[in-house]
């Protein structure tokens, strides 16, 4: 018995939250290695940024040239890590345009599709940036302390928190921008995209 669009009231709600959550988890679990590489991309960028940040904090020289150099290094590291994360996430979302088109055909709303990508990128971004920060900041912290700097544990914690925050934010932004674009496309266009 076909449903009649005229007699069925339009229900203006998405499926419950767990539907999107399960989809995000399944996507991470099944595509584990692909997702691990994306996460590693995020982690490496953040590790580089946090290690430069630790080095900047450990800079004790009063020479203005050395100080400018360390700020410059940390700034460049931040920029490189932002570009790296954006690239990783753009790739991992654009290769899934067809999946997005399919979801639209099944009756998913634009907001459901974006929700799945937000959840996925939150999980990946958090793991990647936390790991990257702990390792990057930790390694450089050990090095500068061995070299005789007195950089406290508190500074390490601060840099880890900063790195995780920056990484998480960038990952989510870089993932949802293409996801929103794909979700708003006509379904036929999203299905045609081949990467």
């Amino acid at each position: 018995m076909p449903n009649d669009a005229r007699t069925t009231a339009i229900k203006d709600t998405d499926p419950p939250f767990w539907v999107a959550w399960n989809q995000a988890l399944a996507s991470i679990r099944v595509r584990f290695w692909r997702q691990a590489i994306t996460t590693a991309g995020v982690g490496l960028g953040i590790a580089f940024f946090t290690s430069m940040q630790i080095q900047r904090l450990a800079e004790t020289s009063t020479d203005p040239g050395a100080q400018v150099r360390s700020v410059w290094l940390a700034g460049t590291a931040l920029l490189m890590c932002l570009v790296g994360i954006t690239n990783s996430m753009l790739m991992s979302v654009t290769e899934r345009y067809r999946e997005i088109g399919t979801f639209k055909c099944l009756g998913a709303s634009d907001s459901f599709i974006v929700k799945v990508f937000v959840l996925e990128s939150l999980l990946l971004g958090f793991m990647g940036s936390l790991l990257g920060s702990v390792i990057g900041a930790g390694a450089m912290w050990a090095v500068v302390n061995l070299q005789g700097s007195r950089l406290g544990f508190g500074s390490w914690m601060q840099v880890v928190a900063l790195g995780t925050g920056v990484g998480l934010l960038m990952t989510v932004v870089a993932a949802i921008a293409p996801a929103i674009q794909a979700a708003r496309m006509p379904a036929a266009a999203a299905l045609r995209v081949d990467v």
Binding site: D12, G107, S109, R184, A187
Partner: peptide, 12 residues
Amino acid sequence: PKELAFLRCHTI
């Protein structure tokens, strides 16, 4: 777009 999603879901 929301109504179109509803149509795809129920009718096609």
